[in-house]
Design a protein around this nucleic acid. Structure first.
Lengths: 220, 220
DNA sequence: CTTGTTCCGTGAACATGTTCATCTTTTGAG
DNA sequence: CTCAAAAGATGAACATGTTCACGGAACAAG
């Protein structure tokens, strides 16, 4: 009887372990919630020792961050696939935020505890900052693409404050998600109404010149 | 020698203890940061046992909530005092958000960890929800007053979606605070620029009719 | 195969928010 | 004043995220 232990290369095993931890963790976050899921639970379910988990993910929150990585990837992929190129800009943005909320919907309880810390980049002091920064950037790059596309097709006038618009989008987007999380109306209908109206309002205003200075005199 | 112990009535002592815990805690949150301040530290500095703290505040976060209670009270008081009644609506709102940020500025590190959980109402599941709800409401009531005042003076046309405007304000306000927390520009100048321009833009648009439906044809 | 090195897994130990059985103080009735 | 009940204070104990010193497995060189 030759080699009793099959000698699996280290790299393969590591990758497999990492995936296993992730799968187990996400499943438990779903079923039991983030707070209720213990690092000991995760390690146990993944068949490894407690400390080993920390060889793969520096904190419990980082483990959760992967959730958002995957969710964002799915959202962008779906948006590219499902949202017709010739749709109006407000439709594209509405659809982007909707998809996002949809992907994230089943994890609402988990989000209530996590999203914010995970999505809001926070200060440079926060050890989390760099990791979330890249998430945010990937998101904003996509939105910048949508805006550039709309501008290229004459759907938006040249405004001269495009980068600020992107900042504003981030602010807006975070606000909507927070609102949604806290929306107690049936089917979260308030969120959809707010999203719809605020998008129309903003884009109409932008199309009409996006004036940032004094109001014209024709105002009531 | 009569009563060796002066027998201070319980109520008085309790109130004093509560205040002492609060003062000590806020001071330490400032100097060492929220995370670095231990419940044991607080109890020690307040001269009581660890468990006693929990007779006064159910969680460490509730202790922090008082910070916001006080900050909001100061902000509203200052705004009522400092902001002239006849100022334009955008100035009033700008000033309100500025004051808020100013009051909260020294605690930025603390905020990075806390604000969100403390200010975002989160789900009904969250034990924190009710307590933060009242904070939010007090804030929004004040803003509603500003809007009503502006409408009464003809500064804003009757729009027909005032309550949605209040929701939008909440979204906007949270977004700005998040942006500010994450703003790496010198003196946070990006935040001020964004705040200024977005307010002008929005209010100009509202004054010009606050159209929510299809854009007019005169758009470029 | 042998061996030194590097890498990884392990679980005990630690830090800290929170709970709870127990003890102490206050209170008010007799 | 006396004393039983009520209210409050206490710190040991618990739960859980995180660290770390240790040991063993994988690997490369001889």
């Amino acid at each position: 009887m030759p080699s009793r232990t099959p000698r699996i290369p280290r790299d393969v095993n590591k990758e497999a372990t990492k995936r296993r931890i992730l799968e187990v963790a996400l499943a438990m976050f779903q079923s039991k919630g983030f707070r209720q899921t213990t690092m000991r639970d995760i390690a146990g379910a993944a068949g490894i020792a407690l400390g080993t988990t920390y060889n793969y993910f520096p904190t419990k929150e980082h483990l959760a961050l992967y959730f958002f990585e995957e969710a964002l990837a799915r959202v962008l992929a779906r948006h590219r696939r499902e949202c017709p190129r010739e749709a109006a800009l407000e439709e594209k943005i509405f659809s982007l935020i909707s998809l996002e909320i949809e992907e994230v919907e089943p994890y609402q309880e988990f989000l209530n505890v996590m999203v914010i810390q995970a999505t809001v980049p926070t200060s440079p002091l926060h050890p989390f900052s760099l990791d979330t920064q890249s998430l945010k950037n990937r998101h904003l790059e996509y939105v910048a693409g949508l805006l550039a596309d709309a501008a290229g097709r004459g759907e938006l006038p040249a405004l001269g404050f495009e980068s600020m618009l992107l900042s504003a989008f981030w602010v807006y987007h975070m606000g909507i998600v927070l609102f949604w999380l806290n929306d107690g109306s049936p089917n979260k209908s308030d969120t959809w109404a707010l999203l719809d109206k605020s998008l129309r309002f903003t884009l109409n205003a932008l199309r009409q010149g996006g004036r940032l200075e004094e109001p014209s005199e024709q105002a009531v």
